[in-house]
């Protein structure tokens, strides 16, 4: 059991640069356990890069990432990742169940093959996302929303404590968006920490309880009611947020 007062994710002084162009400047970010957090910011703000840096997928120029006070590499197993849907080739010759089983590969480790238990877990995850009738469907025949559900199921079978998701609502229909958000809220109720790169400012207050405003540097981070203010948003987006309702 993780100590209650420890931080689920602690990012300190993180700078990521491509060549000499900084993508993230000196980011400090504390994510407490059990929150549903949205990372928002304009295009090119470094949202995806922040997630990738936490996961060790891009090498930071400076700074550190701790997961429950330990370096990420020792904590891999408790961090689940849902990449952007477009990051893989959906024409790959495989079916839905197979993709979901990939979430078990980390627990299995090298060489060991998935077995019946892994198949059961994958089936269970597919039921959770409402895709249990698509197990043998070739993945190229899925709609965008179905692909996203498959990716979510794949993260669920990892049985992680922390989930990092890159735009899980991108290009999905309204039904799928509602299904996904209730699933994420259920994860939070079960004590999981969920970090989501999010694009739609209109839904932030409805869906999330914490928010991080990002634009190359961290503008603000904290509970929605203190953080998601017009002033902060104006600083993040440079004054182009007139369409936001002021709460």
């Amino acid at each position: 059991m993780q100590a209650l007062d420890s931080k689920a994710i602690e990012v300190t002084d993180l700078t990521v640069a491509y060549q000499e162009t900084p993508v993230l400047w000196d980011i400090d970010l504390d994510v407490p356990p059990g929150v549903l957090l949205a990372i928002v910011g304009p295009n090119g703000a470094g949202k995806t890069t922040l997630i990738k840096a936490i996961l060790g997928l891009v090498r930071p120029a400076a700074g550190n990432v701790l997961i429950y006070n330990k370096p990420y590499v020792t904590q891999r197993r408790i961090v689940g990742y849902v990449p952007q849907r477009g990051s893989v080739d959906w024409d790959f010759p495989t079916n839905v169940l197979d993709v979901v089983m990939m979430g078990r590969y980390g627990a299995l480790g090298w060489i060991k093959r998935p077995g019946n238990r892994d198949r059961e877990l994958a089936m269970h995850a597919l039921e959770k996302v409402g895709m249990e009738n698509y197990t043998t469907r070739q993945i190229s025949q899925l709609s965008g929303g179905q692909q996203q559900r498959v990716f979510l199921a794949r993260a669920l079978v990892q049985d992680a404590t922390i989930y990092l998701m890159d735009e899980p609502f991108q290009g999905v229909d309204a039904t799928t968006e509602r299904a996904i958000i209730s699933l994420l809220q259920e994860l939070r109720e079960n004590g999981k920490t969920v970090v989501v790169v999010h694009h739609d400012l209109q839904t932030v207050t409805d869906y999330f309880d914490w928010v991080t405003l990002l634009n190359i540097r961290r503008i603000a981070s904290g509970p929605i009611e203190d953080t998601f203010t017009t002033e902060n948003l104006r600083e993040t987006y440079g004054g182009r947020v007139a369409f936001i309702k002021n709460r």
């Binding site: 996961l55 891999r76 961090v79 990742y81 990449p83 990051s87 990939m102 060489i111």
Partner: peptide, 22 residues
């Protein structure tokens, strides 16, 4: 035969393979 699972994952989704330690 030995690395079938690893080959499949690394080919389909290399970043997931990294985060799973494979």
């Amino acid at each position: 035969l030995i690395f079938y699972k690893e080959l499949k994952l690394a080919t389909f989704d290399a970043s997931l393979a990294v985060t799973l330690g494979l």
